[in-house]
Amino acid sequence: MNRFVTANPSKCIGCRTCEVACALAHSKGAGVEGLAPDSFKPRIRMVKTADVSTAVMCHHCEDAPCVNSCPNNAIVYRQHSVQVEQERCLGCKNCVLACPFGVMDVVTVPAVRQFAGMTLSLGVKAQAHKCDLCVDRESGPACVSVCPTSALTLMDRDAMDETLRRRRERAAQEAAEVAA
């Protein structure tokens, strides 16, 4: 099973700590001082409607519409997750339209190449941009670790089984109560 981060709307307080942690986890070590409104592109987004506050991000689907829609096979299953091979991304936005959760985006980043000790600018490069589960981060998903109300959890097979077990138990309990 692919792993993914889930948010519990009955715990989320809409504070956006997760957004900042996500952006920082992908800042290549630039730290907070590198953050600015124009370049702020967290892969998790807090959404607030009249009745709900919660964070939304990639579900790392098992039969992922984004994977299926990519004409250049840039999106792959790897390390129990859905990952983008950025070198292959064309920026065609098929995946953006395919994702039913609205959590895939295409962004452009400055493209550079190192040549003979010099940095050459190659214009811009498109990137399909979404939660990568912080696979390169030793301590795991940054968002999960900072959420002040523990609204976020990393679901893997074990966590999922545990949740299912609890739900079934509760259902059995409720059925018994109805019968009684």
Binding site: C15, V20, E33, P37
Partner: peptide, 22 residues
């Protein structure tokens, strides 16, 4: 609001907090 504090002389000088709201 959650991201800013008091008269904002401190949080207004914090890049992350200023990124979220200006």
């Amino acid at each position: 609001e959650v991201g800013h504090y008091s008269c904002r002389s401190m949080t207004g000088n914090c890049a992350a907090l200023q990124t979220l709201a200006d």
